[in-house]
Amino acid sequence: MTAFPTMYRYEIRDVLFDLDAAELISDLEDIGAIQFNPVEQHAWSVTITVNSVEPCGAVICDFWEGDCYNVDFREYNP
């Protein structure tokens, strides 16, 4: 298991919990997810921030028929 920095570890955990609970696209939109690839309709992203201000990365996934697949965390490099 990968350890995430403490400053956004809990936000990632909360996003993963919400993605697991999502059943509809509207559920993804409720947690702030956006479709990040217009060509691939199933690709979604949720931005992770430091103290709800500065973006530091994103949890990305494919959403298909009520389930998330290929979940990954991409950290932004300044």
Rank of each mutant, 00 (worst) to 15 (best):
I25W: 02
M1Q: 15
R9F: 03
I48D: 00
E11A: 02
N51L: 03
L24T: 05
F4P: 01
I31V: 14
H42Q: 12
F63C: 05
I34G: 12
P78I: 05
Y76F: 14
N70I: 07
A3I: 12
Y10F: 06
F17Y: 05
D67Y: 01
N70Q: 06
D30N: 15
V50Y: 10
E65W: 01
I12A: 11
E54R: 09
F63H: 02
C56P: 01
M7T: 15
D72N: 14
Y69A: 03
T2D: 08
F63W: 05
E40H: 04
N37F: 08
D67Q: 03
R74Q: 00
R74A: 00
R74M: 00
V71S: 09
D30M: 15
V71E: 11
G57F: 01
G32E: 10
V71C: 11
T47G: 05
C56K: 03
A33P: 04
G32L: 15
N77C: 05
E65M: 04
N70A: 10
N51K: 10
S26A: 09
N70V: 05
V50F: 11
E11F: 00
N77R: 05
F63P: 01
N37E: 08
V46W: 12
Q41M: 12
C61M: 06
N77D: 05
G57N: 05
P38G: 03
C68M: 09
T6L: 11
W44D: 00
D62N: 14
D72F: 15
M1F: 13
G66S: 04
V53W: 13
I12C: 13
P78C: 03
T49A: 14
D18R: 12
S52E: 10
E75T: 04
D30C: 13
I48T: 02
A21Q: 15
E11K: 03
E23H: 12
N77T: 02
T2A: 06
Q41T: 09
E29P: 07
W64G: 01
V39R: 15
D27M: 01
T47V: 08
E11N: 02
I12N: 10
D72K: 15
A33W: 03
V71P: 04
L24Q: 05
H42K: 12
S26W: 08
Y10E: 09
D62E: 09
Y10S: 05
C61F: 03
I60C: 11
E54W: 08
I60H: 07
T49W: 04
N77Y: 04
W44F: 07
E54I: 13
R13W: 08
S45R: 11
L16C: 09
W64S: 04
Y8R: 06
I34C: 08
T47I: 09
V39C: 08
V46R: 07
L19D: 13
A3R: 09
T2R: 11
C68Y: 02
E23G: 12
C61V: 01
T47D: 06
S52K: 03
D30I: 15
C61K: 00
A3C: 13
S45C: 08
V39I: 14
